[in-house]
Amino acid sequence: MKDRILATAAVLFMAGATAQAQERTLTISVYAFAQDAYAKIVYQPFEKECGCKLVVETGNSAERLTKMEVNKAEPVIDMAVMSMADALSAARQGLVDKVDTSKLSNFVRLYDIAKDPNQDGMSVGYTFYATSIAYRSDKVKITSWNDLLSKQLAGRVALPNITTNQGPPALYMLGLAMGKDTPDLKASIDAVGEHRNDIVTFYNRSSQLVQLMEQDEIWAAPIGRFAWAPLRKLDVPIKWATPKEGQTGGLNVMVVTRGSKNRDLALQLMDFWLSTKVQTDLANALVDSPANKDVEVSPEVAENITYGAETAANVKLIPSAVELANRENWLSEWNAKVQQ
C-alpha cells in the first residue's frame, strides 16, 4: 500500500514538473501599487494571449535596481519598470539590453517624450505623471512650493524621502521657488533641514499619505498624480495645487534585462502594455496616465490623471544624467542636514 502511494506521488510529481517545463514563464518586476487593477487589465489578459505564465515581483524603483545588480550574472527577472534615472543607471551598468522597437507595433503611438527618454535606446516610457502638492483646501491655500515650509503648515506637512522618485523633483521645485535653479539642491536641502521639526515624516511610499491625510496628521504633501485618486475619495476636501513655479513630475519606463532568456516574450508584454486598449483601461482605472497619444478618456478621468499632449510637454523633468551625477551628493547632504 505504502509503495503504491509513493509511486502515485512520484508520477504526479513528474507530471507536474513536465507541465511546468512546457509552460513558458515571464518574470517581471513592477511598482507595488494598484496590483489588483494591473492583474485585471494587464497580467491576466496577457497570460491568455501568450499562453504563458507571468510571475510578478513588486517593490520600489531603487530596490529593483539593487536586486538587478545583485543578480547580474544570473538574471531573475526578464522585464522591469523603473524611473528614468534608474533605467539610465541600469543601462550604464550593463544590466539591460537595447529595446528592439521594431518589435513594438505600438511604439509609433507614443508621445515623443516617452519614445526614448534617456536617448540611449535602452528604455521606453509607459506612463508619465505630474508631481505637485495635494492639500486640505479647508485648512490652507497653496500657491507656491515655498508654502510647504510656511508657518501655517508647521507640524502638518509630509515630504517625500530623498531616496524616492518624488524626492528630488519636489526638492528641485522648492529650490526654484527659493530662486535657486541649481542641480545640487543645496538650498532646498538646507531649508528642509532647518525646518525638520516642522515636518511630520519623510514618506517612502505614496500610499502612506492616504492614512496621514485621513487621520488629520497632515494637511499637505508633494505627490505624484498616480497617487491622487485614492486621496480624492477621502471624506475631507483635498485639492491639487497649481503652484506658480509650475509642476514637476516623472516618467516611468520599461526595460528588458540583459541575459533574459525570454526577450521576445518580454517585448510582447511591453507592446501589449503600450497598446491603446490597455493604456485606455489603465487610465480609466485611474492607475497610470497614458504615454500612448491615441488614448481618449472622459473629462472626469482626465481630471484625475496626467493627461494630454500639452501636459506631457509641460512636465518639468530632471534629466536622468543630472540626477545620476548628483544622487550621492544629495544623499550625503540630506543625511547631514535633515537626518540629524
Binding site: T66, F202, Q339
Partner: peptide, 17 residues
C-alpha cells in the same frame, strides 16, 4: 519612519537603496 532611523532601518536602507 525615516526621521527616527535605527540600526535595522538603516541596514535596510543601505541594502535596498
Amino acid at each position: 519612519g525615516s526621521k527616527v532611523l535605527t540600526l535595522v532601518t538603516l541596514l535596510y536602507q543601505r541594502v535596498t537603496i
